[in-house]
């Protein structure tokens, strides 16, 4: 190909920082899985990889939404409440009877998205800081769910969600295919659509985006709505996974959803980051969790080690010097 033959390598010799970071996150996950054999001989097996991927699928989907919000410089603290909302509405409105499952599932996602859009409206037009606005939404939604269920969410999982979370195809759980498709779509949306580019422009410099003709106010609602819908969907997945909803089902996902995004190479201040990196961050965090829980140490030590590895990984990944080393090796190789 003529392009390949071109002697102009200026654009190609520089490894993009985001790409390096993404490769490193995935590399680190693989190293962790291989090393985990030293902890227990059963680890490092195909079965463990599948366990990690299933557990990571929740985090991957949630972090897509959180990642978009962080990309525009915001933060979504309403994720746990929306996971609960999605889960509770699914078990009470659809339940094991599969009442109108094909239109109710999308309808519930739309409700979640609308709740997210309300947070967005508060942030854009009432100028409430994202932190406070999403926290307020979270409290309201959680309280509504508590009042609506009087504390005990009834019903079980619709069969469609059981199929998604429990069935296998060609030796691999269906949910893994689903997550791969989601990753592909998310990546295309963020990198190859006008919406994705506008969001990045908005996160990099709001005024510049405005001058460039982006309708920034309306655009800013979108990530919050997507994030809420993603959280609602994770609620549905959790319903299929554990065949029921609880009011605290989302609690443990708040910080990991932010951590996955940041470890994946995004700036917490917005404007940079890729979804593929976030996926790597989610897998890395889940691998670490699985490995740590197999170490026969007391809970205190396990969480200390987990924390230390996360900080260490972030330091290594952030280091500009790795990009330099990468570039140097490329130049020498040629």
């Amino acid at each position: 190909m003529p392009f390949e033959a071109s002697s102009d390598r200026r654009g190609r010799q520089k490894l993009d920082r985001e790409t390096v970071n993404t490769l490193l996150v995935f590399g680190l996950s693989i190293v962790l899985i291989v090393c985990s054999r030293f902890i227990s001989p059963a680890l490092g097996s195909w079965s463990q990889v599948l366990t990690v991927l299933i557990l990571a699928s929740f985090l991957v989907i949630m972090s897509f939404g959180q990642g978009l919000v962080i990309l525009i410089g915001g933060l979504d603290l309403s994720i746990p409440a929306l996971i609960t909302l999605g889960g509770v509405l699914t078990t009470t409105w659809i339940g094991t009877a599969d009442t109108g499952v094909w239109y109710m599932l999308p309808a519930i996602l739309v409700i979640c998205a609308l709740v997210g859009a309300v947070s967005g409206i508060g942030i854009v037009w009432l100028k409430v800081p994202p932190f406070i606005m999403t926290m307020a939404t979270s409290i309201v939604v959680a309280s509504v769910a508590l009042g609506y269920t009087s504390g005990t969410p009834r019903g079980g999982s619709p069969s469609a969600l059981l199929w998604l979370m429990k069935s296998w195809f060609l030796g691999v759980p269906v949910v893994i295919y689903f997550t791969l498709a989601f990753i592909l779509l998310g990546w295309l949306l963020q990198n190859f659509t006008a919406l994705g580019r506008r969001l990045r422009a908005l996160g990099t410099n709001r005024n510049a985006a405005l001058i460039a003709g982006v309708s920034v106010n309306r655009l800013e609602l979108v990530p919050y709505a997507i994030s809420a819908a993603c959280a609602g969907f994770v609620g549905m997945m959790l319903v299929g996974y554990s065949n029921g909803a609880t009011l605290r089902m989302g609690d443990s996902y708040m910080l990991p959803s932010i951590a996955a995004v940041v470890i994946g190479g995004s700036s917490i201040l917005g404007g940079s980051g890729t979804f593929i990196g976030t996926v790597g961050g989610a897998i890395l965090l889940t691998t670490l969790g699985t490995m740590i829980s197999a170490i026969g140490l007391s809970e205190g030590w396990r969480t200390i080690i987990e924390g230390a590895i996360i900080v260490g990984a972030l330091l290594v990944l952030r280091g500009e010097f790795l990009t330099h080393i990468g570039n140097r090796m490329l130049t020498r190789g040629k």
Binding site: I39, T51, T246, T290
Partner: peptide, 27 residues
């Protein structure tokens, strides 16, 4: 005792933590 984990008296957490422990100790 080959694995000891905190499940916070919650079904879903128990399921995930047990899944992790089973990955390391299927026996």
């Amino acid at each position: 005792v080959v694995a000891e984990y905190y499940s916070y008296w919650d079904d879903r957490t128990t399921q995930q933590e047990t899944a992790k422990a089973l990955a390391a100790h299927p026996d």
